[in-house]
């Protein structure tokens, strides 16, 4: 009886460990933060790309419309890939695009915009990446959708694609 009980304990423990490790191995080891709750936009002050003056977040997001905040840089290859889609989104009247130029050289960023077009109604400079941290970003490109109540309702990690553009269009309609 005792032997059977010990065997049962051993088998149960081993099965438990197997299930835990099996589940762990199947999980992706790349972390992508999920937006479960809506979050308020951060309160910040940032330098404007064109005028070189400081603007606060209340002024940047003052209009009663949807906003898209896109983090980009001229050195970021995936940013070039998603750029035509941002140009397409810019044609939509119900959304305003704000660009966050991340750890970039001003001249290179200007060249990028001149070459590929400017989809942004405003571009902010994030020289040291701290503005990106305020938004909860951890890499580029990253895109945030902000609703009329100034809440971040969606976060897209990596370059946006046609499917994401359709999803955004559906929300802002």
């Amino acid at each position: 009886m005792k032997k059977k009980f010990n065997l049962f304990i051993i088998i149960t423990s081993l099965s438990f460990c197997f299930v835990i490790f099996y589940k762990g191995l199947n999980n992706s080891n790349t972390y992508a933060p999920k937006i479960i709750d809506k979050k308020n936009i951060p309160i910040f002050e940032a330098k404007d790309f064109n005028s070189n003056t400081y603007l606060n977040s209340a002024k940047i997001f003052e209009e009663d419309t949807f906003y898209i905040v896109n983090i980009w840089a001229s050195w970021c290859v995936p940013c070039k890939k998603e750029h035509p889609l941002l140009m397409e989104l810019n044609k939509n009247q119900s959304v305003k695009l704000i660009g966050l130029n991340y750890r970039d050289k001003l001249n290179n960023a200007k060249k990028f915009i001149n070459e590929f077009g400017n989809p942004y109604s405003q571009i902010l400079i994030d020289n040291n990446g701290t503005l990106g941290i305020e938004f909860g970003a951890y890499g580029i490109p990253e895109t945030f959708l902000i609703d009329k109540n100034k809440m971040i309702i969606k976060k897209f990690v990596g370059p946006i694609n046609e499917k994401i553009v359709e999803e955004i269009k559906l929300i802002i309609k």
Binding site: R103, N128, G129, T130, G132, I133, E134, G139
Partner: peptide, 12 residues
């Protein structure tokens, strides 16, 4: 880059 930005935020 991520870590250095976090370091700056924590410093601030």
């Amino acid at each position: 880059d991520f870590a250095s930005s976090i370091k700056l935020v924590v410093d601030k």
